[in-house]
Design a binder for these strands. Structure first.
Lengths: 130, 130
DNA sequence: GAATAAACAGTAATGATTATCATTACTGTG
DNA sequence: CACAGTAATGATAATCATTACTGTTTATTC
């Protein structure tokens, strides 16, 4: 029934499965365009929303810039450099451990936990010293 | 030199100091407008950005909706209900405890840590049962 | 290989946020 | 107190990410 195959979605999935990448919607768009020059940015957004709802991917809000997407849904945190905007995985694994307590306190149903660090990455720290 | 007094900024500050509120820029705009009907939405955004840079307030990215702001900068987490959009404080206090390890792993300088839970608040869970 | 509906491309619309610029109003000095 | 200097403002245009719409294509079922 529901989900029907499409090469565009397949290409988007492939892009999100590359290791250690956290692409924005338009980065995905540009990458997939190499193979499917006619893909529409709307198609990218629609599929990202669907995959997110399906729990297949996770999105990272950066605040000032476009949201980034991560095909790795294992328990890990993110570090966003406020200088260069790069996103780094922090494999601390402490995220979901916080859920039980938080759920008790809120009285609701917690479905997801996101831990985001912001600051300067090692590269940008070096730049500052100069 | 630097920061000069302004009544508009004072009014924005006052709005952010009210307990347990997490207003969006336009909610602050509407509230301050009662006292200063001519305040501009741009003034609200400019002051929010400055206060954020000064570490005086914290902003909470909601993903799909407008960013929310919190005058309470003490170590606590947030719970965003994906149904009604409300933001709840979770006084878990586990955020900054994660920083040292994460800093070591990243090799950079971590300035901030934000822990956000998403799911359904107690009110919305009740709604679902019906 | 036709019928059906999901998915698409292309693009307009929206909403949040930022930038611009002429004007206003704090603040220190004579 | 008048005034000069300049930070902050109001109004609004511009930008950017994201969503919505519409007519067309294409995967799937028979």
């Amino acid at each position: 029934m529901s989900e029907r195959y499409s090469r565009q979605r397949e290409a988007i999935r492939k892009e999100l499965k590359k290791e250690n990448r956290h692409p924005t919607a338009s980065e995905i768009y540009e990458a997939v365009r190499e193979e499917y020059p006619h893909i529409s940015i709307g198609t990218v957004y629609r599929n990202l929303t669907e995959m997110k709802n399906a729990g297949e991917i996770v999105s990272i809000e950066t605040g000032s810039h476009a949201a980034r997407h991560d095909g790795n849904t294992s328990d890990h945190c993110h570090f966003i450099c406020r200088m260069c905007g790069n996103v780094l995985d922090i494999c601390d694994g402490g995220c979901s451990a916080l859920i039980p307590d938080a759920e008790k306190e809120s009285g609701g149903k917690i479905e997801n936990c996101s831990v985001t660090f912001t600051g300067l990455c090692s590269e940008c720290v070096k730049m500052m010293d100069k």
